[in-house]
Structure formats: structure tokens, C-alpha cells
Design a protein around this nucleic acid. Structure first.
Lengths: 207, 181
DNA sequence: GCTTTAAAAAGTAAGTT
DNA sequence: AACTTACTTTAGAAAGC
């Protein structure tokens, strides 16, 4: 009887220790990515939910924490790519993606596909672009979505191309190389999306 | 027979014997690779029916890359003959079972993947990772990858006729979505 | 879970020329 | 900038780690 009691204490000790570790992991990764408090809190809620439903079995705490953070970023509309999360954590993108899908399914969270528009504020800010360019890029992306020019393409690539076009149109030009770097895509991808957007949206970009 | 469905890959399994000496088989078969440290099966590629066969010590055999069950059977008979002619103890006409088939088709329309992802349960669409939307059907238990172009990949098929059934179900679902929108 | 096999879809990436 | 090659996703079997 005493044993059983001690075991319970041990188990709850381990659970608390694991939860504390998970929360510190969330904070560590979130800090590295400069994520706001609400995202961290959202991720913590998701993580606790996963613990309560016993979804951690067979998975690493770091993996679930990283996936929870990835999902929280999307829910808060300040998306980070799987590569960014993977780089900030010590979990590879494949496992984060797999765990994220598992969590979304088991916790009954349905996340809309990442909207390229959600990447614009961050990318534009990192490029030191003014609000007008940001607004123009968003307007381009809205038109692009209406014409089905975003479906199937990587959200970061389309967002990058829209920002590049907007920067040129409003006389705040950034090079494709610079935009590509902050967006984490190649210049080739920006060129491909650039061609597609300017052609189908009848945008005249005179350099 | 409206949509032109094309089977592009058939995976089949069978058994051609038991306790097969893979080292010996590797010497007999031409294009064979056997590296037990890397994988327990012997890999043999044929060019005639362009397929790949995996042969295991247990005598179990997998054949992939065929365009039909018949093609896979031809391939299996070929290696059986080669191994038998070399004196190995092999089963002659083993029963071949189709484990999976992959087909491609075209919906004829360009679907809005975002709408499908939002409105249909059981779909996964993560353009950051892959351009296709993953649609799992329960009835014919298959998985369909839907692309923005309207092209489609159906996999998990056990029977060829299920491809058209799955395709029609998806077209019907897509029509329902458009009505709602 | 991973390893190996084949094949398609479309996007993205990387290395050459 | 074009080409080529290669990896992302899906299913399924096999034997072993």
C-alpha cells in the first residue's frame, strides 16, 4: 500500500518534471524565434491538451513541444516555417510535420492552410519596407488567391514574390536576393512566382 | 468510362519457396544486389517488364513497378525460371496477390484546394510541404492526391475498378462544395 | 519508427553548363 | 537562364533493427 502511494508520488513527480521541461522547451524555442507571449501561451495550452489525452506516448517531449509551437504560430497568424522551427529546436522538420498532423487530428484542431498574407508583415519588416509596400503586397496576394495563383505553391514563395513586386512598384526596391533570404526560398522560386503573378494579374513592372 | 484512368504502378507479393540462399540467388540473377547490412532482401531489377523484385530469405517476394498484375506475374515467372534452371528449390506457379496499385487521372476541372481543405474532413493540405491535397476515402479505402491542375493520383488500390468509384465520389463531393459556395 | 522498391502528381532546391 | 537530377507526399508487402 505504501509502495503504491510512493509510486503515485513518483509518477506525478515525473509528470510535473516532464511538463516543466516541456514548458521550458517551449520558452526556449519561442525566445529564439522572438515569438510573442500569446503564441507561447497558445502552444502551452496545446501541449497540456496533448498530455491530458495521452498523446505524448511514443513521442519525444521536444518533438511535441516544437509541433505545438508550429501549430500555435499558425493559429495566431504569425506562421513560422517548419524549417524555422526545426532550426530553433533540435527536432528535424520531418518529425515536427508528422507530430503536428497527429496533434491537429487528435486534438480536433482544424487549421486552415497557411495564408501567404500572414508572412507579409514579418518579411516586410525584416526588409525595412514601409506600410504602403506591405499593403500593396497584401492586395496583390488577395487578387492572386482569387485567381487561384496561390494554390499548391509554397506560401513563403508567393509572399516573397508579392513583396518583391510591391517594393518595385512603390519605389522601395529590394533585390530578389534579399527578399529570397528573409523568406527562406531561392531566387529562382521568386522569379517563377513573379512571372506568374505579373502575367496573370496584368501588373506592369518596369525596371 | 469518362475519365481516363491509368495504372502506373502495381505492387504484388507472393512466395516462391522457403529458406532461400540469397547469396546464391544473387550470383544466379544478373541485376541483383544483396546487401544484408542495408536491407534484408535481395533486390533484382528486370528491364523486360520494367520492374524491381525484392526476394527474402523466407521465400517471400515483392514485385513493384509493373503496370498490371499480369506484368508482375511475367516478371516473377522469369526469375523463377532462372533460379530453377540454376538448381534452386523453387515453387512453380505461386499465387500472386496485388497489395497496392497507383493510378493517375484528371478531374477535368481546376479545384480550389483551400476550399476543399476547409470543407472536407479528413483532408490534409499543407502547401509548404507538398503541393497536393491528401484526401483519404473510407469506402474504397484509398488515398487520393489532388493537385491544383486537376490531376489526381490514387493509391492504396486493391482493385482497378475502385479507382473510378473513388474518382466519381470525389467529383460528386466537389460538386456539392461548389453548390455551397 | 527506419531501411528498400516503383510510379505519378507539382513545387522547390541544387548543381552544371 | 536553361537543364538535370533529386527530394517532398501517398499505399503496401517483405525481415530485421
Amino acid at each position: 500500500r505504501l509502495r503504491k502511494w510512493q509510486r503515485r508520488i513518483r509518477v506525478s513527480d515525473a509528470s510535473e518534471r516532464n511538463l516543466a521541461f516541456a514548458l521550458s522547451e517551449l520558452d526556449r524555442i519561442a525566445s529564439k524565434l522572438g515569438l510573442p507571449r500569446n503564441v507561447r501561451e497558445n502552444a502551452a495550452v496545446l501541449y497540456r491538451g496533448a498530455v491530458e489525452k495521452g498523446l505524448i506516448r511514443g513521442r519525444s517531449i521536444e518533438g511535441v513541444a516544437a509541433a505545438a509551437l508550429y501549430a500555435a504560430c499558425r493559429r495566431c497568424r504569425v506562421p513560422r516555417t517548419l524549417d524555422e522551427i526545426a532550426e530553433a529546436s533540435r527536432v528535424d522538420r520531418k518529425e515536427i510535420g508528422r507530430t503536428y498532423r497527429f496533434l491537429a487530428r487528435e486534438l480536433g484542431i482544424k487549421l486552415a492552410p497557411t495564408n501567404p498574407i500572414d508572412y507579409v508583415p514579418r518579411f516586410a519588416s525584416e526588409l525595412g519596407l514601409p506600410g504602403e509596400v506591405e499593403s500593396k503586397a497584401i492586395a496583390i496576394l488577395q487578387k492572386a488567391a482569387e485567381k487561384g495563383l496561390t494554390s499548391g505553391r509554397g506560401p513563403t514563395g508567393v509572399a516573397a514574390a508579392a513583396i518583391y513586386i510591391a517594393s518595385v512598384l512603390l519605389g522601395n526596391r529590394r533585390t530578389q536576393r534579399d527578399v529570397a533570404e528573409v523568406a527562406g526560398v531561392t531566387e529562382v522560386t521568386i522569379r517563377n512566382r513573379y512571372k506568374e503573378l505579373t502575367e496573370h494579374l496584368d501588373i506592369d513592372v518596369t525596371l | 468510362m469518362e475519365p481516363k484512368i491509368k495504372i502506373v504502378n502495381v505492387v504484388v507479393s507472393t512466395q516462391i519457396g522457403s529458406d532461400i540462399d540469397l547469396e546464391e540467388a544473387a550470383l544466379i540473377l544478373d541485376n541483383a544486389e544483396y546487401e544484408p547490412e542495408q536491407f534484408p532482401g535481395l533486390v533484382c531489377r528486370l528491364s523486360d517488364p520494367k520492374v524491381a523484385l525484392l526476394i527474402f530469405r523466407s521465400g517471400k517476394v515483392n514485385c513493384t513497378g509493373a503496370k498490371s498484375k499480369e506484368e508482375a506475374e511475367v516478371a516473377i515467372k522469369k526469375i523463377i525460371k532462372e533460379l530453377k534452371d540454376a538448381g534452386m528449390d523453387i515453387i512453380d506457379n505461386p499465387e500472386v496477390k496485388v497489395q497496392n496499385m497507383v493510378a493517375t487521372a484528371d478531374l477535368g476541372i481546376e479545384p480550389n484546394l483551400d476550399d476543399i481543405a476547409l470543407m472536407i474532413e479528413g483532408t490534409e493540405y499543407e502547401p509548404e510541404q507538398f503541393p497536393g491535397l491528401v484526401y483519404r476515402l473510407d469506402d474504397p479505402k484509398v488515398v487520393v492526391l489532388i493537385f491544383g491542375s486537376g490531376k489526381v493520383v490514387i493509391t492504396g488500390l486493391k482493385r482497378e475498378e475502385d479507382a473510378e468509384i473513388a474518382l466519381n465520389k470525389i467529383l460528386e463531393t466537389l460538386r456539392e462544395i461548389e453548390e455551397i459556395i
